[in-house]
Amino acid sequence: MKTLTKFDKIGYLFLLIIFGLGIYYANTNLQYFDEVYTVEDGFVENGSAIFLFSSCLLLLYRFFKLFKQKDFFWKIGILAIAIVFFFGAGEEISWGQRIFNIESSEYFLENNAQGETNLHNMVVDGKKINKLVFSQLLTVVLVIYLIITPFLFRKYGWVKNLANKFAVPIVQWHHTISFLVGTSLLVFISSNRKWEIYELAFSVIFLLIFIKPLNKEIYSSN
């Protein structure tokens, strides 16, 4: 595809390898898949944090680079997205808790499913926030953003103007297709740890979206 950049090609090749190995290990050595390939603080989980943080840094770079040339709403939009991805990166590694060997407070030990200092594993009234918010709500948001928004952006001028005004990057169709392919590949992995691979795919594809969205002009100087 002519719309694919070299970053897209490298990113998709990387994900094909990750999914390929994941499917292979999950079907030949499930213990290795669970305890090595997708283990906590392993390559896959740390990779997700790195790519999420990379997205944050890229957005912040553009924020400061174009600060004097963009209006208030553009700044609010890009800064808000950067904060979201910084939060995601921090949550992925429990805010460096295990890296720096920091003990969880009594509150998190009692209310976090894994006894860690993060929000996505919190348990409220016996229900995990991860399932209610970070899974179900995120699924709805992704469907709207990846499938519905691109159609609306192309069809309605006011949607296009609003997205550009708040520096909301619009996905190209190959981004949407890559998410759908990644989602379908999960069928071949029976382990619950498969979601770690999905999170890595999420972080990689969003970085590719930020590098070159459909409305790439939002990252151009006026």
Rank of each mutant, 00 (worst) to 15 (best):
T183C: 07
W158T: 06
L52P: 00
F151M: 11
K160A: 11
L207D: 06
Q97K: 08
S184L: 13
W158E: 01
A89F: 03
Q114A: 10
F43N: 04
E35C: 03
F51M: 14
S203Y: 03
K9S: 06
G11P: 00
F72L: 13
Y219T: 05
E110C: 02
A26W: 06
W173D: 14
G157Q: 11
H175M: 11
I147H: 07
F166W: 15
F72G: 00
N111K: 10
Y25S: 09
S190Y: 04
Y12A: 01
G126C: 03
Q172C: 09
F7S: 13
I17L: 14
Q31V: 11
V84T: 13
K6G: 10
V159S: 05
I99D: 11
P150Q: 09
L109R: 13
S135K: 15
Q172E: 15
D71S: 07
L119W: 08
R154V: 05
L79V: 08
N192V: 13
M1R: 05
L119D: 00
K212S: 07
L180A: 13
E217A: 04
Y107G: 03
G182C: 14
K9I: 14
I83Y: 01
N121C: 02
G20N: 06
V181W: 11
N111D: 03
A113E: 13
S104T: 08
A163K: 07
S54P: 00
E196Y: 08
V141K: 06
L21G: 07
L138V: 13
H175Q: 13
T28A: 05
S55G: 15
V124F: 12
M1Q: 04
Q136S: 10
N164M: 12
G90V: 02
D125T: 04
N111Y: 12
L180E: 12
W173H: 12
T3Q: 12
K216V: 11
I218H: 05
V181Y: 10
V168Q: 09
G182F: 05
V141G: 02
L52K: 07
K65N: 06
F210I: 14
S203C: 10
S54L: 13
L208N: 07
E116Y: 05
T28F: 12
F73H: 10
E103T: 14
V143N: 08
Q136H: 08
R62V: 00
A82W: 05
F179N: 04
F73L: 14
V123P: 07
I102C: 03
Y145H: 01
D34H: 01
E110G: 01
D125A: 12
I129D: 02
L79I: 11
D41M: 12
L152K: 01
S55K: 04
I205A: 05
N29D: 15
L30K: 13
I197P: 09
E106L: 11
